[in-house]
Amino acid sequence: MTASAPDILTFDLGSVTVREINRTLHGLAAGSSVEILSPDGAHNLACGLTVPISVRIEGHTGYYCGGMNEEADILVNGHTGTGVGENMMSGRIEVTGNASQCAGASAHGGLLVIGGDTSSRCGISLKGGDIVVKGKAGAMTGFLAQKGTIVVCGDAGEGLGDSLYEARIYVKGTVASLGTDCIEKEMREEHLIQLAALLKAAGCPDKPTDFRRYGSARQLYHFHVEHAASY
């Protein structure tokens, strides 16, 4: 924060529509700060932002909050619905509560932090972003994840990392089961360094050495008939 904090623009969803808010957000200059009140589960809030502005949402949001985010810093003081930060490219989204299914789906960049638990398919088709879940993550976390990193500080549900490509998954708690072609891998120095940085960025007190790393066995990279039972 600089000495002269920028003025905060406040919207209340009780009196303005999502369209009006998003339209305004899309036109703001870098460095602007916005506060959104009474979101009441509204969908598509603060999606498609393109510049480094900071947005604080006070309450629970619906689907696709912060979808396709570029550069902006979004804080949701509450829970989010399906697909928070889907396909985000850069920037940061933090949810203090729980996030529903498909959090960070196909994200290409940026950091998504979920303070509570998240439901199934978190980080599905991840393409380069980083996701840190402070609580538990549901079934099929990291399904088809290609690039980027998923950190789960709590337990992970069934089918972790199913059909994983090059994405990395770190889990501190238990893993209900591994998905097809996902295996536990050695935690090397580079991984501890990467994980430490991510935990720090997300504000997690956890120790990197308490985590296990999971990745792709790369057995499904080429279609072989002997693997047909896995497909």
Binding site: N44, G48, Y64, G67
Partner: peptide, 9 residues
């Protein structure tokens, strides 16, 4: 909802 998101963006 997805379509509305694309429209918003």
């Amino acid at each position: 909802i997805k379509i509305e998101e694309i429209r918003e963006i």
